[in-house]
Amino acid sequence: MKITRREADHAARLARLALTEEEAEKTTEQLDKILEYVAKLSELDTKDVEPTSHVIPVSNVMRDDVARPSLPRVEALANAPDSDGEFFRVPKIIE
């Protein structure tokens, strides 16, 4: 398994990371090593193992459908880089 620069660029774009040329090269190399390391797992025979999505044997953790008070708006907006006191404000989304 070899990660190409193209794949690394694609992953960076999906993660909204603007990598410099140097970072991109380094990331490609590191990703490749990580995947190679993880690929060791495929050496195991998993023929009789159920695919695992969760490691703890717990299911059905649910809550009753009851509405509880929400945060005051001022707190909800407190961590936002920008707001107008009512809405979060973000750079214009262009469709």
Binding site: D82, F87, F88, R89, V90, P91, K92, I93, E95
Partner: peptide, 14 residues
């Protein structure tokens, strides 16, 4: 997302 009302920001109601 609300796009109307401003040329350079969009507003978000969560």
């Amino acid at each position: 997302n609300i796009h109307e009302g401003s040329a350079d920001v969009s507003r978000v109601d969560l």
